[in-house]
Amino acid sequence: MMQVIDAHIHLDMYTNAQQQQLLQELDEHHTEALVAVSNHLSSAKQTWKLAQVDKRIRPAFGYHPEQQLPTTEELNELLRFMEQHHTDMNAVGEVGLPYYMRKEDPTISIEPYMELLETMFIHAVNWNKPVVLHAIYEDAPVVCELLEKHSIRQAHFHWFKGDESTVQWIVGNGYMLSVTPDCLYESEIQRLIQQVPLTSLMVETDGPWPFEGPFHGMMTHPRMIHASVAKIAELKRLPIDSVYHHLFANTKDFYQL
């Protein structure tokens, strides 16, 4: 096994015991760093505290879209925290649009979430930080338009799902996409891997989100990324050492690790 970086994990959502176990085992499983994203203010504060203790944790602060909108005061408090700690922050994220919430409740308006996303984009530009995106299926082209509107070049579409034309748009703009361990058993993700050039790919766990297939019943762990790398090499018919090298370099360069 060669070195990997988990490009997207919700470390604050693990229990304290799980966090300690995971961090103790990073070296054993050749994991150099974790890009730890946040869901809201308290999540950001926890992630920041974790990053102060272990420098392998690279924090991102933001407001996850699959939840109720923040109040004005909640948003202002989050933005104040991000401003205060922007030099500690590797990215703005996780941000995006609420695809799954709107599937469950079509009456939810997308416009306020777009306004929130634009606010995050404006601050990301001011802080010169990349953005970590939850933007899938038909939401992805909407987000691409907003990225272009704000001249954002550094965008990471995590656990991406969408049509081929959107993939081409994302890749053409120089944005990055990442895949999770579900690439071992999900044909949709396997097709995506075949479409996306290796230079545009990263690997992640999105832990503690659980997986099926060979990982059924297991705690999601960065060690699973090695199986993802092997699957990508198989699907692309490339030497596994080359795939390791490119995925590692892509993530290191994108997040300036």
Rank of each mutant, 00 (worst) to 15 (best):
E164H: 13
A135H: 00
P59D: 01
F121C: 09
Y14I: 03
D27K: 13
M224V: 05
M176E: 01
V143A: 03
Q154A: 09
T180Y: 04
P112I: 07
H158Y: 00
H123I: 10
P106H: 06
D139L: 13
L192Q: 06
H8F: 10
G217K: 05
D139H: 11
T220L: 04
T119G: 10
N128G: 10
V243W: 00
A230Y: 02
H64L: 09
Q19W: 04
D241I: 06
V142G: 08
V142Y: 09
L69R: 03
Q68L: 12
Y113M: 05
L146T: 08
V4W: 01
E32F: 12
P106S: 07
Q194T: 13
L75I: 12
L147Y: 03
T87W: 09
H8W: 06
I122F: 12
Q18T: 10
H158F: 05
P210I: 08
F81C: 07
D139R: 08
E77Q: 14
K129A: 00
R237S: 13
T71A: 06
Q18N: 06
K231V: 04
N76A: 13
N76M: 10
T166H: 02
T119C: 13
E73S: 12
G93A: 07
H216L: 15
N90G: 07
E118A: 11
P65G: 05
E25S: 10
T31S: 07
E74Y: 06
P214F: 02
V203E: 06
Q19Y: 00
A140T: 07
E28H: 11
H221C: 00
M202Q: 06
S42E: 15
F248S: 07
A135C: 02
F254L: 01
Y99R: 14
T119S: 09
F160M: 01
V143T: 03
S228Y: 01
G162Q: 05
L50F: 01
R153E: 14
V171H: 05
K236A: 02
K161V: 08
V142F: 05
K231N: 02
R153I: 10
F121M: 12
K129E: 05
Q24T: 10
V229S: 01
H64N: 12
H64Q: 09
N173E: 11
N16R: 14
V37I: 11
K129Y: 05
I5K: 00
F211E: 04
Y100F: 15
L117G: 07
I232F: 04
V37G: 01
S187F: 09
H64W: 11
V4I: 14
P197R: 01
P222M: 05
P210L: 09
D163S: 06
V142K: 09
M82C: 03
I193P: 01
L147R: 02
V132K: 02
W169V: 12
N128C: 07
E73W: 10
S187E: 15
R153H: 15
S165K: 15
S165V: 13
I189T: 12
T15E: 07
W127P: 00
F81E: 04
L177S: 00
L78N: 02
